[in-house]
Amino acid sequence: MSGRVLVITSGKGGVGKTTATANLGAALALRGKRVLVIDADIGLRNLDVIMGLENRIVFNLVDVIKGVCKHQQAIIKSKRSNNLFLLPASQTDDKNVINVDEMRDLLNKLKQEFHFILVDCPAGIEQGFKNACAGADQAIVVTTPEVSSIRDADRVIGLLASEGIETSLLINRVDRDLVKQGDMIAPQEVVEMLGIDQIGMIFRDNDIVISSNSGDPIVYNEKSKVGKAFLEVADRLLGVAVPISTNISESFWTRLGRKFSRAV
C-alpha cells in the first residue's frame, strides 16, 4: 500500500482545519479506506478532543520522531471505526523540535500502512506549517468567506504552489442568509479571487458546535446536512464527481435593493 498524504491548512487560525481533518478522516474511513489523521499542531493539540480520544493518548508525534516509541505505540484507534486512527501532537513541546526531513521520513514510512494520511496543520506559515506540508502529496486550503481569512489563504496557496503541491479550496462557515442579503462574499466569488479549484463548501452550522462538545465527528450523524457535505468532499477526494450544487448568490430582493441603493 502506498497512501496519499493530504495536508489541511489555511494560514489563519480558527477557520475549521481541525474540524475538517476530523470529519474528512472519518468520512474516508466510512468509505472503507484505512485512514490516519495526524495532529501537527504541536503545543496546541486539539484533534484528539474533536475526535473524543483525549483520554487514550500515551505517546505522540514527537515521541515517534525522536525514537522514544514505535509509531504503533503512539497511534490510537478511533472509537467509531476500525479504519480510522489518530497520531496525536505533543502538548508540551515546541513546533521547532522536529524538522521537515524527519516529518517526510515518517510519512514515507506510514504511507505503507494507510490509504490516506491527513495532516492537521497549525496556523501560521512558520516551522509548524513547513513541517505539516513536508511530504504532502496534496493540500486542502480551508478558508471562510472573510477578508482576513481569504487573504491568508492566498498567501498559503502561493507557498504551496512554490513547493509544487496540488491544492484545492474548501470554503467553510458560509452563512446562506448573509450571502443572500449581500453581506457575505459568495463561495463562487472566493474561488474566482483565489484562482484555484474548489473541493467543497460547508455551511455555518450549529451541528458542528454540538458535535465538538461530545467529541463525535458530525459525519456520523446521518441526519446532519453539514455531515453530508463533508462526506461529499471525501467522495470528491476519491474521484467521484459529486457536483458542488449549493453555490448561492444574492436573493432577487437583494439585487433589486442594491439597484435602488445606487439610485438613492
Binding site: V147, R151, Q181, G182, I185, F260, S261, V264
Partner: peptide, 26 residues
C-alpha cells in the same frame, strides 16, 4: 431590504474591494 437600501449597506462589496486591494499588494 428597504432599510439596507437607505443605509446603502451591502457590506460584501466593501469586503470584495478591500480584498482586491490587499491581494494585489500581497
Amino acid at each position: 431590504i428597504i432599510k439596507k437600501i437607505f443605509s446603502g449597506s451591502f457590506s460584501k462589496y466593501a469586503a470584495k474591494n478591500r480584498l482586491q486591494m490587499v491581494l494585489t499588494q500581497d
